[in-house]
Design a binder for these strands. Structure first.
Lengths: 215, 215
DNA sequence: GTTTGAATTAAACGTTTGTTTAATTTTGCA
DNA sequence: TGCAAAATTAAACAAACGTTTAATTCAAAC
């Protein structure tokens, strides 16, 4: 199913980069063709249309990411705390290593109302929540986590923080006029801070007995 | 400076709604004109161009939001914990009450590389951080907050969480086929959960003594 | 070497876009 | 009422867009 020729992959990679940096709508097929050094007609020839190219991009990265998430889901971990740490690592590493796709997806997600892309994104959001839920429940079962944790809240914090921090880094890097190398180093540095503090924050929150239980 | 006629405000409000829901690029001037029941030429006549209309929208909402943030900055609060609670309230309420603009801004922010919009967004991000920083430092001064708090991290968590939760709510609401009223009630419910748990989480994190100080 | 189908190309197509024009209507003021 | 400026309109404009066409090149099989 997902077997693309080298030329198709070249087009997809080039398109992903341009879509992420300039936006889907502001990237013309001619832009992609020029950057990938292929003829304009090749996109329609291989993918059918610009929309289908976007769909192909989503499918490709979704199968990779959701597969990874599902594998984690069936891992055996020794403690609930390790589970939480592991999940934070997986989310951060995935969002960081697939920054371009993640940027494109988040952007498109905010204006999509239905169709195959909507279904894919909804499916991924559900899987994200399942993963967080599993870790939380295992900690609750053995009594080390508080009982009134809200998973919808937690997964929003997790994903939202990473994306927001990466966006902030891009802005700071541009403001400080960092070059590509410096910017990536800056991102990496802040991602590691995020990782460390997010783990601390989640642990503190999950083990903290709720002081306003009756609210 | 910011004095617009009723017709100009009508165009701006209509444009904001369409930009937020369909995206800036996918909304044509004809779409706006039709929805606002004005002639297509009126947009260029009043604002100069579509880009300038977007700039006007940004200016309008930015002056409001940044003014509000700066006012908070000089408020007197009794305790550091109250300061944190207050800031969380302000961010949540602002992001929630200006959902449409916030959605538009976040979306455009991810593909803007320079220009007046870039400067405005950067300015707002800086102000956000200043606000968080002030609350954290006041708690550190009197010794109730830990010393190694990272403000860049905290502000990312705060803004990122709210936006991500609202985006998740939109998806859930569409999946559950809620109508407009039900969707807003669903959002409101989850925002209140977010508010409560975010305050707990921040407090737990800020007062939690760091167990890996030497890391 | 010929044939067959895929790959590649330059050119053209029709549509939509943001914007402008030029004419007309409305408004506010003397 | 008369007049000048502002507001509003329908029509037209050029440019950019995604896509298609029709011709040509390429590669592999026989």
């Amino acid at each position: 199913m997902n077997e693309y020729s080298e030329k198709q992959l070249l087009i997809m990679d080039t398109a992903l980069k341009l879509f992420a940096e300039k936006g889907y709508d502001k990237t013309s097929i001619r832009d992609i063709a020029f950057a990938a050094d292929v003829n304009v007609a090749m996109v329609s020839y291989y993918f059918g249309s610009k929309d289908k190219l976007l769909e192909a991009l989503f499918s490709k990265h979704f199968t990779f990411i959701t597969n990874m998430l599902e594998n984690i889901l069936y891992e055996k971990e020794s403690s609930a705390f390790e589970k939480v740490d592991r999940i934070i690592d997986v989310f951060i590493d995935t969002l960081y290593s697939r920054q371009l796709f993640n940027r494109l997806m988040t952007r498109e997600a905010s204006i999509i109302h239905d169709g195959p892309l909507f279904d894919m994104i909804l499916d991924m959001k559900t899987k994200n929540r399942k993963l967080v839920e599993r870790a939380v429940k295992s900690g609750q079962r053995i009594g080390v986590f508080r009982k009134d944790v809200n998973v919808f809240f937690l997964s929003s914090v997790l994903i939202g923080s990473v994306n927001q921090l990466l966006a902030n880094c891009r802005y700071e890097a541009k403001h400080a006029k960092l070059n590509d190398e410096e910017r990536e180093a800056f991102k990496k540095k802040n991602i590691e801070i995020l990782r460390k503090h997010l783990k601390q924050m989640f642990t503190a929150y999950l083990t903290h007995s709720n002081s306003t239980d009756n609210a």
